[in-house]
Design a protein around this nucleic acid. Structure first.
Lengths: 148, 148
DNA sequence: CTACTATTGCTATGCTATTATATTGATTCT
DNA sequence: AGAATCAATATAATAGCATAGCAATAGTAG
């Protein structure tokens, strides 16, 4: 694997990994960088194809392991309704999350609204249900596409 | 295909289809009935296996077409985060929906809370985003499982 | 009856994700 | 440094989810 293209974002991620004492290996950094450069959602196999430009022997487990690592460390999000993945705009911190996914331009707006989050948790607690994980994804048309 | 097992739910669905002037064919009724009898989420291939007991030549497209029909007519929901399907407890009417999915017993509580729904729509509109479809799914532990 | 449309049958294939096993590489301990 | 240990990667195979395309058939309308 050739050296990874440096970037401020990557540098921050390296710091976070150092602080958390986890190994941010070459494959992981390369996948991180590919995700960071890709605006919007990307599928595992699209990512794999891109990774193979740097590492021709990369196989599905290569990419899925890297994605798993990035998810665990809160560097990326998984979009359930698209079977795809997205750079997290809060790099490395856990937080309430909602997504607005544009059907037309495919861009994704990442929200972190406590009102929506708590409304759901509150409602669940009325049923004695303890939420461990929320999937809050909306599809529609973004402002830009609406006027184009 | 043998005759479909009658049930009050099926009878209501038949009425709705008649009213909407759509064809509720034998395969569709059979899949409807299988879904109705199955409490909780079920995958397309699990359903296919069950359908094959009645219709040995059923293939994946058979089940996916039936599911598509049932989705369009609001008889079932798709659970994005599980790649599976669920009987709708409001048979035939469109409505706001949120799901509470128990990781342990796999039961699903279907909510229809306008507060959560509107909080999300409201937030989106602040970004000029027009939502066409929401995916609101929470995973966790239900009350029953919590005390067992 | 004929023409039209919706539905079904069938084959193949594509996309998404994981399992299992072997191997390599990093870290720790003595 | 050498041995033991644990984390990460390579590789092949396969499981699981979903759709495309086309031919055949059944239902509906004129």
């Amino acid at each position: 694997m050739p050296p990874i293209k440096p970037s401020p974002l990557l540098a921050r991620a390296i710091d976070i990994c150092k602080a958390n004492n986890v190994r941010f290996t070459a494959v992981r950094q390369q996948v991180f960088t590919l995700m960071a450069e890709h605006k919007g959602a990307i599928t595992a196999y699209e990512l794999l194809e891109q990774l193979q430009a740097f590492d021709s022997k990369a196989k599905p487990p290569t990419i899925y392991r890297a994605l798993e690592f990035l998810l665990e460390n809160h560097f990326i999000h998984r979009i359930e309704s698209l079977n795809s993945y997205l750079m997290c705009c809060h790099l490395g911190c856990e937080h309430a999350m909602q997504l607005l996914i544009c059907n037309k331009c495919k861009k994704v707006i990442e929200l972190s609204d406590p009102v929506i989050d708590e409304a759901f948790s509150e409602k669940a607690s009325q049923f004695g249900f303890k939420i461990t994980n929320k999937v809050l994804e909306a599809h529609g048309i973004c402002e830009t596409c609406l006027y184009n």
